[in-house]
Amino acid sequence: MPPVSVAAAAETGAVEARERHRKLARRQEQLRTTLWRLGVLVAFAGAWEGATRGGLINPFWVSGPSLIVADLWKAFTSGSVFLHIGVTLYEAFLGFVTGAVAGILSGFALARWDRLSRVLDPYVTALNSLPRVALAPLFILWFGIGVTSKVILAFSLVVFILLVNTYAGAKNVDQDLIIISRLLGANRRQLTVKVILPSSIPWIFAGLRLGLAYALIGAVVGEVIVAQAGLGFLISHSAGVFNTTGVFSALIILMVIAMLLNELMKATERKLLRWRPQIPGI
């Protein structure tokens, strides 16, 4: 590298100042967005509360923010809710991990082994187009009303998402990268591990994010149908005794869990995909 000239240094200084200014502007914009978001929440909760207190709607059907907050407070302080959260997370987690591993492996196998994919293609398509939530009653029949049937339902949802995404990722590798790697001496195994796998990571991550959401759906749907514990059980049980507040409390807990899990995934993804070009605004 040529030595840095005075002019270049001055320019660097100017660039840094501009960069600082942009950062500040961005932070202000973020703050504004956050305030507006809070505003929307307060307005919505306020309208809800007002409508139920003012007698516009009967809280028996729609509950109300203050009732829900009180219910949540009780649930968390008494600790009664933790078992349900734990059960649902446990089922979703097991279904997610097993489904993701199986989906990624089979996606790669299909992508790298042409005969296998030619033979299995119609079956994969058929199973994938089946709404697998409809299998829930069957799974409960086979695997009982406990945790296992929910894990398997979550698994069945996750596995195909990961299979399809991994397959697409492995098939969409830039051909130039394959050719240049072969020219540099890569064998088949090295191509899979060092080129196709890393280049499919963005696709796999997209699948994992979706898969995580679906794992939670699988667990909760299973519980809603029949269970002894879990947030889905809490929902159906509360609804069964006309406790709308209980239903809303469980829904809010679910929503927060799903959002936290999604953020966790995004952070992991950002860390692993540092090499991707940073597009401002995304």
């Binding site: 830039d174 130039d176 990268l177 050719i179 240049i180 790697s181 020219l183 080129v195 890393p198 280049s199 990571i201 995909l273 090499w275 991707r276």
Partner: peptide
Amino acid sequence: YMFARDALLPWRT
């Protein structure tokens, strides 16, 4: 063998 397109592995430094 070198191409007009760099064909660098984007996830590698």
